[in-house]
Write a protein that binds this DNA or RNA. Structure first.
Lengths: 223, 223
DNA sequence: TATATACGATACTATGTAGTTCCGGATCTT
DNA sequence: AAGATCCGGAACTACATAGTATCGTATATA
């Protein structure tokens, strides 16, 4: 302690020790972060925020409770961090489908993997739902990681369709881009029914495309 | 104790006391039930299932905790009962609007009171969300009281429109009747934005009517 | 190899809440 | 009016969990 102060007073003469002395022993690597954050997301999806305990997360990650609290100050901060880190596994906006038609693009977005991931995200959202109004930071993180990306893709695909002249520029893209996120969320969270490829296609052909002035491939064969 | 057994052994001889003796004093009226159930719904909407405590409900209803436990065996049963009792303040299906057009009927359903009530129901739903998968009884009650009535009205109005020949019988009424419940729920619970008359009308004109092959009064003036 | 540090495990403290019990007073029935 | 019962209130028990402290071990640096 005194040594450090003395070294600072005689300014850097022969003093080759850095201002912040080099750590000895093991680095503060926090190498368990990814496993812990993943475990937190799993438990969150299964039991919700209130049902989730720190012990569950620690056990799931085969980590000690101390390790969690050394890294995050509280349960709340761990959860916010876990949510925020989901964004990293997000959509690659530079590789969106480009089939030439809105319908083709929308259907190309339906992949088993994306359905599965969307469902897990919705389960997590369900577990946070009752907290959102009381924890604005959490609501912010959840919006950025779960809600916004889904709508964003739809907006991009629809704007492209407008640019191609495929659909009218009068379309309320803000609203229409939320049709399938809304109805899929309602179906999973409230109706508790599965969202599968067939359902998503029926949404595209039966709701979204008619709303933009196009027609799906099924039904409404008139005109 | 022994006296009762003795009386039973010598079978009913001079025994003029009825099998179920008439109650003296105050009846078991449970007259506080409505206030308690209302208080439970309020707290539920404000804090969610896990945040809700029995003390909060008792205090809100100016009731004693004992009164609650004398009537309901547990917090869970109180909540289920409170949800179930919402159905009583429900829509009067015999007085649905009948304006002659689907659009007219749908818009006639939009009343400040109904918007307000729907929003409260959604807040309650948000508070229950994470419990639904673990408590099937609760999910059942919530579905019957909150989810089903909204969709039901839309189904009835749309079936009438089919019967009038206003819209095609090919319409997927099951899905289309969920458009506005889904998108309103998403907007309130996930986007945390208000649902007002303007939004609901834009849903009718911009999504629902086009999907059934009609057109709203705004935009898409083509044809 | 020696040392400092992070780690998993476990025991511990503090706190909040479900559910119980009891009491004095209010209220209904006879 | 008398008696039985319900009510609001408050104290109490039992338990779960957030967060802290400690210990022996593993591991990366030097």
């Amino acid at each position: 302690m005194e040594g450090k102060i003395a070294a600072m007073t005689q300014l850097d003469l022969v003093d080759d020790t850095p201002q912040v002395p080099p750590r000895l022993g093991r680095k503060r690597d926090h190498t368990r972060d990814p496993e812990i954050l993943d475990a937190a997301l799993e438990v969150l999806a299964e039991t919700g925020y209130d049902g989730m305990t720190i012990d569950m997360v620690a056990a799931r990650a085969k980590a000690g409770k101390g390790t969690l609290y050394r890294r995050w100050a509280s349960k709340g901060e761990l959860v916010i961090d876990a949510i925020a880190c989901m964004k990293k596994n997000d959509i690659d906006y530079s590789r969106l489908p480009d089939t030439g038609t809105l319908r083709g693009d929308l259907i190309a977005m339906i992949k088993p993997h994306s359905i599965e991931e969307a469902e897990k995200k919705l389960q997590i959202m369900a577990g946070l739902m009752s907290m959102l109004s009381r924890a604005p930071e959490l609501a912010e993180a959840a919006n950025a990681a779960i809600v916004e990306p889904r709508a964003s893709v739809n907006r991009i695909l629809m704007r492209r369709a407008v640019a191609r002249g495929e659909i009218s520029a009068d379309c309320d893209i803000e609203t229409l881009s939320l049709i399938s996120p809304s109805m899929a969320a309602y179906r999973v969270l409230i109706l508790r029914k599965p969202v599968d490829r067939k359902f998503l296609i029926s949404l595209i052909d039966g709701v979204l495309l008619p709303a933009v002035g196009l027609h799906g491939q099924a039904a409404h064969s008139a005109e």
